[in-house]
Simulated scan of single mutants.
Amino acid sequence: MIDQLAKEIFAKLPQSPEALSELKQDGEAKVRTLLESSLRKLNLVSREEFDAQQAVLERTREKVDALEQQLAQLEQALQNSQKQS
């Protein structure tokens, strides 16, 4: 069945080089349009947007690490002052 379908499709394709070239260009344009449309629906971000958000995340991680360290120091100071009391 698949072989028969493939033969029928091939038989309907234009045979001249000019017609094949035009068919190829038309097919490429339609595939490109379809891919662009599908990618837009996926709600993807550009590489630049991704890199910018990654930089923000790295800075935020550094701030969180610094705050965690500061908190640990304050907790240690509090424990030391409670022991002295």
Rank of each mutant, 00 (worst) to 15 (best):
F50H: 11
Q70I: 02
S46W: 06
A77Y: 05
A19P: 06
S16Q: 04
S21Y: 12
E36S: 12
L67W: 01
E58D: 15
L44V: 01
R47Y: 05
L71G: 00
V31G: 01
F50E: 11
Q4C: 01
L5D: 03
Q79D: 15
D51H: 02
S16F: 02
L67K: 01
E49M: 12
L35I: 14
T60H: 09
R32N: 08
K7R: 15
E48P: 04
Q76S: 10
K83A: 14
S37D: 13
A52C: 12
L34Y: 07
Q79T: 13
L44W: 04
I2W: 06
Q70T: 00
E68D: 09
Q76Y: 09
S37Q: 10
K24L: 15
F50L: 13
L20Q: 15
T33N: 04
D65P: 06
L20G: 06
D26C: 01
L44Q: 03
L74S: 10
S46K: 05
I2R: 12
A52N: 14
A19D: 07
L5Q: 13
E68I: 02
L39C: 08
K12Q: 11
L74I: 02
E75I: 07
A72S: 07
Q54R: 10
A77W: 08
A77S: 14
E48Y: 00
I2S: 11
F50N: 10
L74E: 06
A6T: 09
Q82E: 13
E22W: 15
A52I: 13
E28T: 13
L34E: 02
E28V: 12
E8V: 12
A6H: 09
Q54C: 08
M1A: 07
V45S: 13
A55H: 11
L44H: 05
S16T: 13
Q54S: 12
Q4N: 10
R47K: 15
K7P: 03
P14G: 00
E18M: 05
F50Q: 12
R59A: 03
R59Q: 08
V31H: 03
D65A: 13
E36M: 08
K63P: 02
Q84M: 10
Q82A: 10
L78I: 05
Q54V: 06
Q76I: 01
Q54M: 11
A29M: 10
S85I: 15
R32L: 08
Q79S: 15
K63N: 02
T60P: 03
V31I: 11
A72P: 00
A29G: 05
R32D: 05
V64A: 01
E18S: 08
F10D: 13
A6N: 09
Q25Y: 11
L13N: 14
S85T: 13
A11E: 13
K24F: 15
A72V: 02
N80Y: 06
E58I: 11
M1Y: 00
S38G: 12
Q73T: 06
N43V: 07
E18W: 00
A19S: 09
Q79R: 15
R61K: 15
A29D: 05
L71E: 07
L44K: 00
Q53T: 06
L67T: 02
A55R: 12
T60G: 00
